[in-house]
Design a protein around this nucleic acid. Structure first.
Length: 418
RNA sequence: CGGGGUGUAGUCUAACGGCAGGACGCACCCUUGGGGUGGGUGUGAUCCGGGUUCAAUUCCCGGCACCCCGACCA
């Protein structure tokens, strides 16, 4: 991608509209634009990040047998009436359409996926099955806040699993838990599995919490083994001994970036989701649901990974792998050479599979380019200038590191290739 | 939904109740060329509706929007 053509605008000014670090930086760097409280446009840079997070989630969901589908966000009132959640979810966006027909924008999709699966399931042989979607969810939050962390429209991956008995659900539940930890690891987030309110049928659900001051949940966690409980269910508190390893429990603010839940038969009862078991007996399907908010993950990464100059993206999440910067001087002849070598490197990096943002702008000063590079937070920065070319080299600097390094042009690809 | 705060140009900000000013951005010119280079010219604003007053960006009332704290968070 040529930076001269990129649809973006950075700002040196700190926005008075945004207080949280993720909103500040993402807006300043031109990754997102705020439409209103709780609703953001993803600009090219931000959309790349969001898509990379979704890609990781898809890979890991597919790896545990999840099959991707896409349900409508627009949903009919009838489905919600069957579970009592038309009135039961106070953040549900409800409205009337033509002919006074009533709708809700999906805030979660149990009411939609359960009758869907009912159409596919007749026998125990059809189970287990797991389907997921990645879609924008709508919640009429009384108070949207903190940039991408709590929106009224936000990205959500919701996985639903259906089983013939509880033991099978339990096994799959653990599988999803492991899968979630892999996802967050790839996002460079240290997620703490936290016991939280489990609803009607199980004692606990599990949340995936990221410790940070900007979090809105309070969790109690063991400093040694990271056994943790959300304050809403906490049986232990700061200073107590960890029931698992005897270590010391601590207290911290955290952001919930995922939640897994055993629904058991709550929704299969409401929608009469039955199957015939081996004995030909009718039984209710056992369900689990599992959510991750990709947009919230994006915001959380910025919260925990930035410095005073900008964002520091983890490799797998960054909008680009490499930020290639050509620096021009006043010497026309060497400028021609800089352009030639930069373009050549741009081509060969792409040929090697790197996603490259190439700052090809000639009239822009070095300071501006470096400032934007730091703000963007692309992991590797390559600079080509008269200075580096005099040594047939390029300057390599990691966004997360301090010291740049001079590398021969002929060696650079080998050097940064994984 | 309760409490607090803030609304001035695309952005960040000034202005005792008395000509709305600066910086950034943007356009053009010159300059500079490894950390948002320096200078010049230009562009561009008082959230909406009432009230008080000779006069309102400023004071008062109502609305709307945004931010923060709390409650809420399937």
């Amino acid at each position: 991608m040529l930076q001269s053509k990129l649809f973006y605008k950075t700002s040196k000014e700190i926005s008075g509209e945004e207080k949280s670090a993720n909103a500040q930086l993402l807006v300043r760097a031109g990754f997102v634009d705020k439409l209103m409280a709780g609703a953001y446009t993803y600009l090219p840079l931000g959309l790349r990040v969001l898509d990379k997070i979704k890609k990781i989630i898809r890979e890991e969901m597919n790896a545990i047998g999840g099959q991707e589908i896409l349900m409508p966000a627009l949903t009919p009132k009838e489905n919600w009436m069957k579970t009592g959640r038309w009135e039961g979810i106070d953040v549900l966006f409800r409205f009337k359409g033509a002919g006074d027909k009533e709708y809700a924008l999906g805030s979660t999709h149990e009411e939609i996926v359960t009758p869907l699966v009912k159409k596919m399931i007749n026998s125990y042989k059809d189970l287990p099955v797991a389907v997921y979607q990645i879609q924008d969810k709508f919640r009429d939050e009384p108070r949207a806040k903190s940039g991408l962390l709590r929106g009224r429209e936000f990205s959500m991956k919701d996985l639903y699993s259906f089983h013939s008995d509880e033991a099978d659900l339990d096994v799959y539940y653990e599988k999803v838990k492991e899968s979630y930890l892999r996802i967050f690891k790839r996002c460079n987030l240290d997620a703490i599995v936290t016991e939280a309110s489990g609803g009607t049928f199980s004692k606990y659900s599990h949340e995936f919490q990221i410790l940070t001051e900007s979090g809105e949940d309070i969790i109690f966690y063991c400093k040694k083994c990271f056994y943790a409980q959300n304050r809403e269910v906490a049986e232990y508190k700061k200073g107590d001994n960890c029931p698992k390893c005897g270590g010391e429990m601590d207290e911290g603010k955290a952001i919930e970036i995922g939640n897994i839940f055993k629904l058991k038969t709550k929704f299969s009862e409401a929608f009469d989701l039955n199957f015939l078991d081996k004995e030909g007996k009718k039984r209710l399907a056992i369900m689990g649901c599992y959510g991750i908010g990709p947009s919230r993950v994006m915001g959380s990464i910025v919260e925990v990974s930035h410095d005073d100059r900008g964002i520091i993206w983890p490799e797998e999440i960054a909008p680009f792998d490499v930020h290639l910067i050509a620096l021009y001087g006043k010497n026309e002849k060497s400028n021609g050479e800089i352009r030639k070598q930069a373009e050549r490197l741009f081509e060969s990096l792409q040929k090697e599979g790197f996603d490259v943002l190439y700052d090809d702008r000639e009239e822009v000063s070095a300071g501006v380019k470096f400032g934007e590079a730091d703000l963007f937070g692309i992991p590797l920065r390559l600079v080509i200038s008269e200075k580096t070319l005099s040594a047939e080299s390029v300057e390599l600097k990691k966004r997360s590191g301090l010291e740049p390094e001079i590398v021969k042009l002929s060696q650079i690809i080998k050097k940064i290739k994984k």
